[in-house]
Amino acid sequence: MFNRGSQRGRRVIAISPNGPTGNGDEVEARFLAPHFESEGFPWLQIFGYIGSLLLTIAALLAVVQHILSPIGLLTVILILAVAQAALQLGIFMHLRESRGSTWHIITLGLGIVIALGLVGMSMWIMTFKSGVS
């Protein structure tokens, strides 16, 4: 599957001790194989769901009721948004259910770079408003 060393070699990673059989049982490399935590009842997920609903409602109410000055409001909803993202990743995106962090770091890193890039550049583009209005 994943050639973790040289990308140029002709090396086939032996997945099962007897080599691939071609019957579909070895299509996933060991370090990528899913590692599920099973529980009797998904309490954590239900709390996570209620938690994300509460965070969303809190953000909406804060804005609709104008509880703070614009800068204060922005800070509050930003904090709520980061908390929400952490909660979603931790509970629903199976961030804790893994045997290795390699892929998490790559994908999260890419996600953060792109998200910050898009948001940051959007803010930069929109600064023109101060010049024209």
Partner: peptide, 12 residues
């Protein structure tokens, strides 16, 4: 593509 390639089919 990341998970279901046949054995031996590295990314490259």
């Amino acid at each position: 593509i990341l998970r279901m390639r046949a054995p031996g089919m590295t990314l490259m």
